[in-house]
Simulated scan of single mutants.
Amino acid sequence: MKTNFKSLAIIALGAFALHSCSSDDNGGDAIAAPEISNFEFGEGSDHSTEQVAYKGSDIHMEAEINAPGTVASIEVDIHGHDLEVGEGEVEWDFEQSFTDASYLVINPTFHEHVDIPSNIPSGEYHITLTVTDELGNSTEVEGHIEILDPITISGFEMDETVARGNDFHIEFMIEAVNGIHEISVDIHGHDLPVGEGEVEWDFEQTFSEGYHELSEAEFHEHIDVPATAPAGEYHAIFIIEDEDGNTLEYETHIDVTVPTL
Protein backbone atom coordinates (compact mmCIF):
# COMPACT_ATOMS: atom_id res chain seq x y z
CA MET A 1 0.00 0.00 0.00
CA LYS A 2 2.84 2.38 0.91
CA THR A 3 4.47 1.74 -2.46
CA ASN A 4 1.21 2.44 -4.32
CA PHE A 5 0.62 5.68 -2.33
CA LYS A 6 4.12 6.95 -3.15
CA SER A 7 3.59 6.17 -6.84
CA LEU A 8 0.29 8.07 -6.89
CA ALA A 9 1.89 11.07 -5.14
CA ILE A 10 4.72 11.20 -7.69
CA ILE A 11 2.26 11.02 -10.59
CA ALA A 12 0.10 13.80 -9.11
CA LEU A 13 3.11 16.05 -8.49
CA GLY A 14 4.33 15.52 -12.06
CA ALA A 15 0.90 16.31 -13.47
CA PHE A 16 0.75 19.57 -11.44
CA ALA A 17 4.20 20.61 -12.63
CA LEU A 18 3.24 19.80 -16.24
CA HIS A 19 0.05 21.89 -15.89
CA SER A 20 1.97 24.83 -14.45
CA CYS A 21 4.48 24.81 -17.32
CA SER A 22 1.63 24.58 -19.81
CA SER A 23 -0.12 27.63 -18.28
CA ASP A 24 3.10 29.67 -18.47
CA ASP A 25 3.73 28.61 -22.05
CA ASN A 26 0.22 29.60 -23.11
CA GLY A 27 0.47 33.03 -21.48
CA GLY A 28 -2.40 32.33 -19.10
CA ASP A 29 -1.21 35.15 -16.81
CA ALA A 30 -0.48 37.63 -19.70
CA ILE A 31 -1.87 41.15 -19.28
CA ALA A 32 -4.14 42.37 -22.07
CA ALA A 33 -2.98 45.20 -24.35
CA PRO A 34 -4.28 48.72 -23.62
CA GLU A 35 -7.63 49.78 -25.07
CA ILE A 36 -8.22 53.32 -26.39
CA SER A 37 -11.73 54.75 -26.51
CA ASN A 38 -13.47 58.11 -27.08
CA PHE A 39 -10.52 59.48 -29.05
CA GLU A 40 -11.38 63.07 -30.02
CA PHE A 41 -9.48 66.01 -31.49
CA GLY A 42 -10.18 69.43 -32.98
CA GLU A 43 -9.71 73.17 -32.53
CA GLY A 44 -8.02 73.73 -29.19
CA SER A 45 -9.51 77.09 -28.18
CA ASP A 46 -13.00 75.66 -27.65
CA HIS A 47 -12.15 71.95 -27.27
CA SER A 48 -14.05 71.23 -30.46
CA THR A 49 -14.60 67.64 -31.55
CA GLU A 50 -14.95 68.72 -35.19
CA GLN A 51 -11.82 67.44 -36.90
CA VAL A 52 -10.67 70.89 -38.00
CA ALA A 53 -7.98 73.21 -36.62
CA TYR A 54 -6.22 76.38 -37.75
CA LYS A 55 -2.63 77.30 -38.43
CA GLY A 56 -1.11 79.34 -35.62
CA SER A 57 -3.48 77.84 -33.01
CA ASP A 58 -3.50 74.36 -31.44
CA ILE A 59 -5.13 70.93 -31.60
CA HIS A 60 -7.06 69.62 -28.61
CA MET A 61 -6.61 65.84 -28.14
CA GLU A 62 -8.31 63.57 -25.62
CA ALA A 63 -8.78 59.82 -25.14
CA GLU A 64 -9.74 57.34 -22.43
CA ILE A 65 -7.23 54.52 -21.91
CA ASN A 66 -8.15 51.19 -20.34
CA ALA A 67 -4.75 49.68 -19.54
CA PRO A 68 -4.67 46.63 -17.21
CA GLY A 69 -0.88 47.02 -17.18
CA THR A 70 0.80 50.28 -16.16
CA VAL A 71 1.26 52.64 -19.10
CA ALA A 72 4.88 53.26 -20.13
CA SER A 73 4.35 55.89 -22.85
CA ILE A 74 1.76 57.65 -24.98
CA GLU A 75 2.97 58.74 -28.40
CA VAL A 76 1.42 61.19 -30.86
CA ASP A 77 2.38 61.41 -34.53
CA ILE A 78 0.95 64.06 -36.89
CA HIS A 79 2.00 64.41 -40.52
CA GLY A 80 0.66 65.43 -43.91
CA HIS A 81 0.67 63.44 -47.13
CA ASP A 82 1.97 65.07 -50.31
CA LEU A 83 0.84 68.58 -49.31
CA GLU A 84 2.14 71.34 -51.55
CA VAL A 85 4.57 73.57 -49.66
CA GLY A 86 4.01 77.18 -50.70
CA GLU A 87 6.36 80.14 -50.54
CA GLY A 88 7.32 80.89 -46.94
CA GLU A 89 5.94 77.56 -45.74
CA VAL A 90 7.72 74.53 -44.27
CA GLU A 91 6.71 70.87 -44.10
CA TRP A 92 5.41 69.87 -40.65
CA ASP A 93 5.85 66.50 -38.96
CA PHE A 94 5.04 66.28 -35.24
CA GLU A 95 6.21 63.41 -33.02
CA GLN A 96 6.18 63.40 -29.23
CA SER A 97 6.20 60.79 -26.48
CA PHE A 98 4.26 61.80 -23.36
CA THR A 99 5.64 60.26 -20.18
CA ASP A 100 4.18 62.53 -17.51
CA ALA A 101 3.62 60.83 -14.15
CA SER A 102 -0.14 61.28 -14.52
CA TYR A 103 -0.03 59.01 -17.61
CA LEU A 104 2.27 56.29 -16.21
CA VAL A 105 -0.56 54.57 -14.33
CA ILE A 106 -3.36 52.11 -14.95
CA ASN A 107 -6.32 53.55 -16.92
CA PRO A 108 -5.19 57.17 -17.44
CA THR A 109 -7.11 59.83 -19.39
CA PHE A 110 -5.01 61.46 -22.12
CA HIS A 111 -5.52 65.22 -22.62
CA GLU A 112 -3.04 67.44 -24.45
CA HIS A 113 -2.87 70.49 -26.73
CA VAL A 114 -0.46 70.46 -29.68
CA ASP A 115 0.67 73.79 -31.11
CA ILE A 116 0.27 74.22 -34.88
CA PRO A 117 2.92 76.34 -36.63
CA SER A 118 1.56 79.26 -38.64
CA ASN A 119 3.88 78.62 -41.62
CA ILE A 120 2.85 75.10 -42.65
CA PRO A 121 0.79 73.97 -45.66
CA SER A 122 -2.95 73.78 -45.11
CA GLY A 123 -4.68 70.49 -45.87
CA GLU A 124 -5.40 67.06 -44.40
CA TYR A 125 -3.06 65.67 -41.73
CA HIS A 126 -2.90 62.11 -40.37
CA ILE A 127 -2.93 61.60 -36.57
CA THR A 128 -1.77 58.42 -34.79
CA LEU A 129 -2.08 57.88 -31.02
CA THR A 130 -0.10 54.91 -29.64
CA VAL A 131 -0.25 53.61 -26.05
CA THR A 132 2.41 51.18 -24.78
CA ASP A 133 2.45 49.47 -21.37
CA GLU A 134 5.43 48.36 -19.28
CA LEU A 135 5.28 44.84 -20.76
CA GLY A 136 5.62 46.16 -24.29
CA ASN A 137 1.98 45.68 -25.29
CA SER A 138 0.82 48.52 -27.52
CA THR A 139 -2.36 49.74 -29.20
CA GLU A 140 -2.88 52.59 -31.68
CA VAL A 141 -5.79 54.55 -33.10
CA GLU A 142 -5.76 56.79 -36.16
CA GLY A 143 -7.67 59.75 -37.53
CA HIS A 144 -7.44 62.74 -39.87
CA ILE A 145 -7.69 66.46 -39.23
CA GLU A 146 -8.08 69.34 -41.68
CA ILE A 147 -5.71 72.21 -40.88
CA LEU A 148 -6.92 75.48 -42.41
CA ASP A 149 -5.74 79.07 -42.78
CA PRO A 150 -7.21 81.28 -40.02
CA ILE A 151 -7.76 84.06 -42.58
CA THR A 152 -9.00 83.66 -46.14
CA ILE A 153 -10.10 86.09 -48.85
CA SER A 154 -12.22 85.44 -51.91
CA GLY A 155 -13.82 87.27 -54.81
CA PHE A 156 -11.01 89.82 -55.09
CA GLU A 157 -11.79 92.63 -57.54
CA MET A 158 -9.80 95.78 -58.25
CA ASP A 159 -9.60 98.10 -61.26
CA GLU A 160 -6.65 97.27 -63.49
CA THR A 161 -6.09 100.91 -64.48
CA VAL A 162 -6.98 104.33 -63.13
CA ALA A 163 -6.43 107.79 -64.58
CA ARG A 164 -4.65 110.02 -62.10
CA GLY A 165 -6.98 112.52 -60.51
CA ASN A 166 -9.64 109.81 -60.20
CA ASP A 167 -10.31 106.95 -57.78
CA PHE A 168 -10.36 103.20 -58.13
CA HIS A 169 -12.38 100.62 -56.26
CA ILE A 170 -11.35 97.46 -54.38
CA GLU A 171 -13.61 94.77 -52.98
CA PHE A 172 -13.21 91.24 -51.60
CA MET A 173 -14.66 88.99 -48.94
CA ILE A 174 -12.74 88.23 -45.74
CA GLU A 175 -13.25 85.29 -43.41
CA ALA A 176 -11.26 85.35 -40.16
CA VAL A 177 -12.07 82.67 -37.60
CA ASN A 178 -10.48 84.76 -34.80
CA GLY A 179 -12.06 88.04 -35.91
CA ILE A 180 -10.58 90.83 -38.03
CA HIS A 181 -8.27 93.26 -36.28
CA GLU A 182 -7.43 95.57 -39.18
CA ILE A 183 -6.73 95.74 -42.92
CA SER A 184 -3.65 97.59 -44.15
CA VAL A 185 -3.27 98.86 -47.72
CA ASP A 186 0.10 99.89 -49.19
CA ILE A 187 0.36 101.22 -52.76
CA HIS A 188 3.65 102.44 -54.19
CA GLY A 189 5.57 102.72 -57.43
CA HIS A 190 9.07 101.45 -58.18
CA ASP A 191 11.58 103.87 -59.69
CA LEU A 192 8.95 105.77 -61.65
CA PRO A 193 10.34 108.97 -63.26
CA VAL A 194 8.87 112.10 -61.68
CA GLY A 195 8.10 114.66 -64.36
CA GLU A 196 7.61 118.39 -64.12
CA GLY A 197 4.61 119.22 -61.93
CA GLU A 198 4.45 115.62 -60.61
CA VAL A 199 4.95 114.40 -57.03
CA GLU A 200 5.98 110.89 -56.01
CA TRP A 201 2.93 109.05 -54.62
CA ASP A 202 2.86 106.39 -51.93
CA PHE A 203 -0.42 105.39 -50.29
CA GLU A 204 -0.60 103.76 -46.86
CA GLN A 205 -3.75 103.41 -44.79
CA THR A 206 -5.17 101.09 -42.14
CA PHE A 207 -8.86 100.26 -42.16
CA SER A 208 -10.57 99.01 -39.01
CA GLU A 209 -13.90 100.81 -38.69
CA GLY A 210 -16.67 98.56 -39.93
CA TYR A 211 -14.35 95.52 -39.98
CA HIS A 212 -12.89 95.23 -36.47
CA GLU A 213 -13.77 91.97 -34.63
CA LEU A 214 -15.98 90.68 -37.44
CA SER A 215 -15.35 87.08 -38.49
CA GLU A 216 -16.80 87.73 -41.96
CA ALA A 217 -16.87 91.03 -43.84
CA GLU A 218 -16.80 92.56 -47.30
CA PHE A 219 -13.93 94.97 -47.81
CA HIS A 220 -15.17 97.67 -50.20
CA GLU A 221 -13.20 100.90 -50.50
CA HIS A 222 -12.34 103.61 -53.04
CA ILE A 223 -8.86 105.12 -53.15
CA ASP A 224 -8.12 108.55 -54.66
CA VAL A 225 -5.10 108.93 -56.91
CA PRO A 226 -3.62 112.44 -56.87
CA ALA A 227 -3.60 114.31 -60.18
CA THR A 228 0.13 114.86 -59.66
CA ALA A 229 1.04 111.15 -59.33
CA PRO A 230 3.57 109.91 -61.89
CA ALA A 231 2.06 107.55 -64.46
CA GLY A 232 3.17 103.92 -64.44
CA GLU A 233 2.74 100.58 -62.68
CA TYR A 234 2.08 100.59 -58.94
CA HIS A 235 2.44 97.69 -56.53
CA ALA A 236 -0.53 97.13 -54.15
CA ILE A 237 -0.24 95.08 -50.96
CA PHE A 238 -3.19 94.18 -48.74
CA ILE A 239 -2.50 92.78 -45.26
CA ILE A 240 -5.34 91.38 -43.16
CA GLU A 241 -4.51 90.86 -39.47
CA ASP A 242 -6.75 88.92 -37.09
CA GLU A 243 -7.26 89.35 -33.36
CA ASP A 244 -4.63 86.68 -32.61
CA GLY A 245 -1.93 88.42 -34.66
CA ASN A 246 -2.10 86.11 -37.68
CA THR A 247 -1.75 87.88 -41.02
CA LEU A 248 -2.64 87.19 -44.64
CA GLU A 249 -0.94 89.16 -47.42
CA TYR A 250 -2.26 89.64 -50.94
CA GLU A 251 -0.36 91.44 -53.70
CA THR A 252 -1.38 92.82 -57.08
CA HIS A 253 -0.65 95.75 -59.46
CA ILE A 254 -2.50 98.71 -60.94
CA ASP A 255 -1.53 101.04 -63.79
CA VAL A 256 -1.88 104.77 -63.22
CA THR A 257 -2.41 106.55 -66.52
CA VAL A 258 -2.52 110.12 -67.79
CA PRO A 259 -6.13 111.14 -68.39
CA THR A 260 -7.11 111.70 -72.00
CA LEU A 261 -8.23 115.19 -72.99
Rank of each mutant, 00 (worst) to 15 (best):
F5K: 11
L8V: 09
A9F: 15
A9G: 01
A15G: 03
F16W: 08
A17R: 05
S20F: 06
S22L: 08
S23A: 14
D25C: 06
N26V: 07
G27N: 01
A30Q: 07
I31Y: 06
A32T: 04
A32S: 09
A32E: 04
I36V: 11
F41E: 09
G42C: 08
D46F: 14
H47P: 02
E50G: 06
Q51L: 03
A53P: 04
K55R: 15
G56R: 05
I59C: 04
H60C: 04
A63C: 08
A63K: 10
I65T: 05
A72K: 12
E75I: 08
E75R: 15
H81L: 14
E84P: 05
G86T: 03
E89L: 13
E89F: 11
E89M: 13
E89S: 02
V90H: 10
W92P: 02
W92M: 07
D93K: 07
D93T: 07
Q96M: 11
Q96V: 09
Q96C: 06
T99Y: 11
T99R: 13
I106N: 15
T109M: 12
H111C: 00
E112M: 07
E112I: 12
E112T: 14
I116F: 03
I116L: 13
S122F: 13
G123D: 05
G123P: 02
H126E: 08
T130D: 07
T132Q: 04
T132M: 10
E134I: 15
E134N: 05
N137V: 03
S138Y: 06
S138R: 05
T139V: 06
E142P: 00
I145K: 03
E146K: 05
I147S: 15
D149T: 11
I151A: 14
T152N: 11
M158A: 07
D159F: 00
A163F: 04
R164W: 02
I174G: 13
I174V: 14
V177H: 00
I180V: 12
H181D: 14
D186C: 00
I187G: 14
H190M: 01
L192Q: 02
P193M: 10
D202G: 02
E204S: 03
Q205L: 09
T206S: 12
H212V: 04
E218H: 00
H222F: 09
P226T: 07
P226W: 11
A227Y: 14
A231M: 07
A236W: 02
I237C: 02
I237D: 11
D242Q: 05
E243W: 04
G245S: 09
G245W: 11
N246W: 06
N246P: 01
T247A: 06
T247H: 03
H253V: 05
I254D: 01
D255T: 12
D255E: 13
P259W: 15
P259L: 12
T260M: 13
